[in-house]
Amino acid sequence: MEFLEVIHVSRSFGPVNALLEISFTVHRGELFGLIGPDGAGKTTLFRIVASLLLPDEGKVLLKGHDVAKDYKQVRRIIGYMPGRFSLYHDLTVEENLSFYATVFGTSLKESAAYVHRVYSPLIPFRKRLAGKLSGGMKQKLALSCALIHRPEFLVLDEPTTGVDAVSRKEFWEMLEELRDMGITILISTPYMDEAGLCDRVALIDKGKLLQTGSPSEIVRTFPAKLYVIRGENLYSLLGRLRKSPEVKYAFMFGREIHLVFRREPDDPARWLGPLTGTVDGTFSIDPLEPGMEDCFVELMGKKEPVDGEENV
């Protein structure tokens, strides 16, 4: 029996299909990431998994329990952290935590070992109102509250959105420690760079699942050869590249252009030369190991038949 099984789950809101035939499994003890841009359907899926929303079709099994029917057992197994900070602003750190503890019939003392790693940085601020905490601390408090009843399964909806880089890194370190304690974690994020930190990921866009696998698997299955172009005035160049018949697609990636050929030229550097003709500056083109975002772009292109010229 798999730890979590999502089986053909569909859900629509009026005419909008938020989720279409989503299926994947999460193994016990895994840190599983759901990666996708805003509006991909991540929150809807998480609310279904957390038994807060019923799917139109399909079902979700957690340790064999149907989350829609056995929601009482399921809620004891799950620790859910919604995307928005949703603790009581007008209660202190300590009051929030002990409220959730008592509601679950436990206490801060009993769960101390469980939440200690996450909660200990907050101890100096335990008398502070939750609404007055910084973003990173709010997030730690929310995670502590999600852990207070010693769940086997953590469902974290975009916990790192809007959090500074240092806190994000720290947060992921914490998640790895929690996983090593034996907690299975399902996390969603719009940041591709965080995908590499997961054991396995599922890529999702517009309510459809694009691919599932470990980050290295996904990167390995990248079907084409990827090139990177570096230089100045890249925006002017991008337009020309997209018009070129050899180019399958090209897109800005930070301060670089990532490019996949439709017909690969023998010498890409020589091929690039004439195209850069009237654009100022020097350019270099080199092969590149694809990252998660490149895979995502490739997969999105596959699902969405757009006209070749303006692809991506």
Partner: peptide
């Protein structure tokens, strides 16, 4: 409005 109901809903309350 604050979304706290969401958190309450996943508790055994």
């Amino acid at each position: 409005e604050l979304g706290t109901i969401e958190q309450i809903n996943v508790t055994p309350i």
